[in-house]
Structure formats: structure tokens, C-alpha cells
């Protein structure tokens, strides 16, 4: 299997647009592909397709439950907890777990010598599977509101990919923080989508530097080309990053996308160029076997 992550430093550059169009084009040309929406904070790739929901997986973490009859109020669990999520007042024998702060690391149950701490699952989010002809084709991660980190939900979604699938397209979360790294670290190649504006350039630069630091091969797609200036092109040339494609800005494209429709569905030339782009990527990087 070959995994391609579609990412962008900045939000709204058309990352999801590129991801769903690549996926659609691959499927249309008869290739075996799966789309994984790793943008767990705001997943919306699945909305472009009318696939059947065939399964959901609850993503949970284990949070402590304290048996007050066994607790001796030694406060060792509190000391072990690095997230301040155990509240204890030994003189008045009060102990509470503040679940909102818990990261589920399990340190408190290791700390307890009196068997007073057991654990129960607490919801972090869900992974939804959408299928077509009994084959999972879209995997969506969605985290619960107010949860600290999207990472466990993203991990769970990536785990759902059937290793027998030909190509996996990962729609990565925006930014360059943990959730982004988590997603791109599992990919064989990263497509960075940017736009030709100063904001786009600044974010692209940050993404490129991050990817270099973890040795990930990447290429750039400039979306809404013609809207801003040439600074992004100059940067890409200077840094010798492959420029995979330029998608010119058009109101028509924006309109099609805004309605939740896929451009590649009505524009065979565009679909064809996406497929050959992917095939070239696989040709060049196919042997960089993914290791974790």
C-alpha cells in the first residue's frame, strides 16, 4: 500500500478539495483507494460522497475510578499525575478525578499500592467507516467537543486502513502541531497544498521545514494560482521542491466546491491529471517502504 497525506500549513487552502478530487479520480479510473479524513476537529471529506455508513468505532481512553473504601489518601496518585487531574485533600478524606484534565496515561493506577484505582473508558471521539460494495472506502475521524487532543482519534482512524488497499489518501489536519505530525508520519509522501499569498507562503515554509526535520518527501500544489503573487513559486523553485500542479483560481471551481460537489466528477481532464500525478509520485517514491 502507498499512503499519500494531503496537508497544508494554513487552513482553507483547498486541502480537502485536493484530497477528495484525487480520491474520486482514482476510484473513477478503477484504482483501489481509500480516503481517510484525519482532520478530526473538523472532518468534512465524507460529506462530498454519498457512501453508506457501515460502521462506527468509539475511540476511548481509560480514566481512573477511585474506590473510596480502599483509598488511604496517601496522595501518591496525585503525585504521579502530571496533568493535575487528581484532586485530593487527605485531612478531610476527599479525592476526586477531574476527567476533563485526564490524558489516560495510567500513571495513577500504577502509583496506587492499595488497589483503589480501577479504570473505565471515557469517550474521545468516533471513527466512522463508509463503504461501497462491501469495501470500506472512506474512514472519518471525529473528536468529541472539548477533548484535549485529536491524536488518539487520528491514530484509531489510520489503524482502520485495510493493509490490502492500493492507495490511501490521508486528509491531514491543518497546522504543524501534533495532529499534523501524527498523520504525515505514517505517510510515504506528503502533498502540501498552498495558495499564492503571503500567508500561504509563511505557512508553507513552516510545513516544509517540519517535514524536512522528519525526512518526509513532499511536493507542492499551488491552489488558486493567479490570485496573489509569485512568491510561493519562487520559494518552491529555490528550495527545489517538486511543484506537482497549479490549480488556477476560478469562481466556477469555488462554486462547485461550495455546493459539496467534486470538480473531478465533471472535468475528466482535471481528473486525468490528478491520476497521472499520483502515479508519478508512486513511481518515484514507491520503494520508500513505510516504517513505523
Amino acid at each position: 500500500m502507498f499512503r499519500i497525506a494531503v496537508a497544508s500549513g494554513k487552513g482553507g487552502t483547498g486541502k480537502t478539495f485536493v484530497a477528495v478530487n484525487i480520491f474520486q479520480s482514482l476510484i473513477k479510473s478503477g484504482l483501489d483507494a481509500v480516503l481517510v479524513d484525519c482532520d478530526a476537529e473538523a472532518p468534512n471529506a465524507a460529506a462530498f460522497f454519498t457512501k453508506k455508513l457501515t460502521g462506527t468505532i468509539a475511540v476511548t481512553q481509560l480514566v481512573p475510578v477511585i474506590d473510596e473504601s480502599k483509598c488511604v489518601y496517601c496522595a501518591k496518585c496525585h503525585e504521579y499525575c502530571n496533568y493535575n487531574s487528581i484532586f485530593i485533600l487527605p485531612p478531610v478524606k476527599i479525592i476526586k478525578v477531574i476527567v476533563d484534565l485526564c490524558h489516560g496515561c495510567g500513571a495513577c493506577s500504577v502509583a496506587c499500592n492499595y488497589g483503589a484505582i480501577s479504570e473505565k473508558p471515557d469517550s474521545l471521539g468516533t471513527v466512522s467507516l463508509f463503504s461501497e460494495k462491501d469495501r470500506v472506502s472512506i474512514i472519518e475521524s471525529r473528536m468529541d467537543i472539548g477533548v484535549m487532543s485529536a491524536v488518539p482519534v487520528i491514530k484509531a482512524a489510520i489503524k482502520q486502513i485495510d493493509p490490502g488497499t492500493g492507495i490511501a489518501i490521508l486528509d491531514s489536519p491543518p497546522g504543524t502541531s501534533c495532529p499534523f505530525i501524527e498523520t504525515v508520519a505514517t505517510a510515504d509522501f506528503v502533498i502540501l497544498v498552498t495558495e499564492p499569498t503571503p500567508f500561504g507562503l509563511s505557512d508553507l515554509r513552516q510545513s516544509v521545514e517540519t517535514l524536512r526535520s522528519i525526512d518526509k518527501p513532499s511536493g507542492v500544489i499551488i491552489n488558486r494560482a493567479g490570485l496573489g503573487n509569485n512568491a510561493v513559486r519562487d520559494y518552491v523553485d529555490r528550495q527545489e521542491i517538486p511543484l506537482l500542479m497549479e490549480i488556477p483560481f476560478s469562481k466556477k471551481t469555488a462554486e462547485i466546491y461550495s455546493e459539496g460537489k467534486i470538480l473531478a466528477g465533471t472535468d475528466p481532464a482535471f481528473a486525468g491529471s490528478l491520476v497521472s500525478m499520483v502515479q508519478n509520485i508512486i513511481k518515484d517514491h514507491g520503494n520508500s517502504s513505510y516504517k513505523r
Binding site: Y83, N84, S85, F87, I88, L89, P90, P91, V92, I98, D100, L101
Partner: peptide, 30 residues
């Protein structure tokens, strides 16, 4: 400068001193 959960940890400090009232500018939900 606690990364997370400064509020509950601070409650623990003042409560362990046996105070009956606490005066501040704002209190978080937790």
C-alpha cells in the same frame, strides 16, 4: 505555570489550609 489543571491544584492548596472563604477576580468552571 502549570501546563494544565492549575485551578484544581490551587483549590487543593487553599482548601488544605482550612479556609472557609476565598476571594479572587474569577473562578473557572472546574
Amino acid at each position: 505555570d502549570a501546563l494544565e489543571g492549575a485551578g484544581p491544584a490551587s483549590v487543593q492548596i487553599v482548601a488544605s489550609r482550612g479556609v472557609e472563604k476565598v476571594i479572587s477576580g474569577e473562578f473557572g468552571i472546574k
